[in-house]
Design a protein around this nucleic acid. Structure first.
Lengths: 223, 223
DNA sequence: CAAAATGTACGAACTGGTACGTATGTCAAG
DNA sequence: CTTGACATACGTACCAGTTCGTACATTTTG
């Protein structure tokens, strides 16, 4: 209503004017980007669909058109975040390296990843508050990080064979120890900083922590 | 209205009948208990004041009477949770023990605490999602865990003096390493379990992890 | 022209918060 | 000891704003 005037000057003028141009892929990607930010900042319950719609170059209608519901959008955000890591982890060539060096590279990678992707870390925290209910319903996510375990298992085995590692350790335990340290630094940055007045994102601190976790893990395996 | 009959048989009969009996302390405590459960399960935004009121032996009116607002209630819940730990941490007598033994006791305590109080762990996670905004506004919480650092500093110093520890380490870093491991096991229990099909709350796993973190930290200090 | 993609406006339910009324306890005066 | 007055403690019903979701209309594209 009240827009009948635009009717006749259509084909090109209108495009340039209101800029509409169907581009589903880009629309979805745009929604996901904004939604990632919103959910990782406010949580699932705290995130507002209207707030997402506003910051999008499209409308709320499109969110429901593509993702069905708020939860559907949240799940899509989660899957997209996990998919992004898979890429990084996959193309690490560690089998040529000596066990100790391989482990250090793997740890550094995990460390840097968490440090560089606080959004992802926060989403995982949020998902844990929801008892991982959404992850469990998504086949896409589940069969993911399993490859890391195989990588670690290989490194540990070679390490034992070469007598550079002396302790028999469970790969999943080792992965947990690494994850815990790298993840916690980011996930608990605020409460930790608030209590101890320490900024965990300072370059010097980052540098020190990166070698610290590696030393600790390798020390543990050599004990 | 319609209760005028109870007027004359007051002193004891009425109390037994409708059970009302002014007990502000118990009412507040009751609200806090329920609210802790609600917020730690659903988060601040996800927690419902009505849901809390329902599970209380009092009404929503009382929540606002005592805590002013939803956020006020949430903050009270947070402070209460932190206050509970202070008690535990305070009466640890570690100065008589040898450095290594003292550290093992401290680590076990942290480990067991997190394991036993998933509600607390979840609240801290939630608070981190909110950038620790509420903690920052509460003087009560801030000057809390600082004592832990002094304890650790003392242990490390004695350890260096006695040449049982060789590495010069920052007490806060050590505390973070311990916290990270203990906290992560609980905070990320669900996503971790979902991906690796491992139940981190199994007794055998708990036992293994408890010694694992202690060995790792002590190994790190001896390297 | 049909199907996919998009925009606008609106509704219905939820949810934090409150107005209003009642009960309980305390304490001083009678 | 009992009466009455005042403050604290409590209950019910309700309101107003928010928020997820949708009906309807329109445009783009193959």
């Amino acid at each position: 209503m009240g827009k009948g005037a635009g009717r006749e000057r259509r084909s090109m003028a209108t495009r340039a004017e209101n800029g509409r141009k169907n581009d589903p892929q880009r629309t979805q990607e745009n929604i996901l980007e904004v939604a990632t930010e919103e959910f990782s900042t406010h949580g699932l319950a705290g995130g507002r669909v209207d707030a997402i719609a506003e910051r999008t170059r499209t409308s709320k209608r499109m969110i429901y058109y593509y993702f069905g519901s708020k939860e559907g959008l949240y799940l899509a955000v989660l899957e997209r975040s996990y998919r992004k890591i898979r890429t990084l982890e996959a193309d690490l060539q560690l089998s040529n390296l000596e066990p100790e060096e391989a482990l250090r590279v793997l740890i550094s990678t995990t460390f840097d990843h968490d440090e560089a992707h606080p959004d992802f870390v926060r989403l995982v925290s949020i998902e844990n508050i929801h008892h991982a209910a959404h992850m469990l319903r998504s086949e896409a996510i589940r069969d993911l990080n399993v490859s890391v375990i195989e990588t670690i298992a290989g490194i540990l085995e070679r390490g034992i064979d070469q007598r550079v590692f002396t302790r028999q350790a469970d790969p999943i335990d080792i992965h947990m120890m690494i994850s815990a340290f790298c993840f916690f630094r980011v996930s608990n940055r605020y409460t930790f900083g608030s209590i101890f007045r320490r900024d965990l994102s300072e370059p010097a601190t980052i540098e020190r922590h990166r070698t610290m976790i590696a030393d600790a893990v390798i020390g543990y395996l050599k004990a």
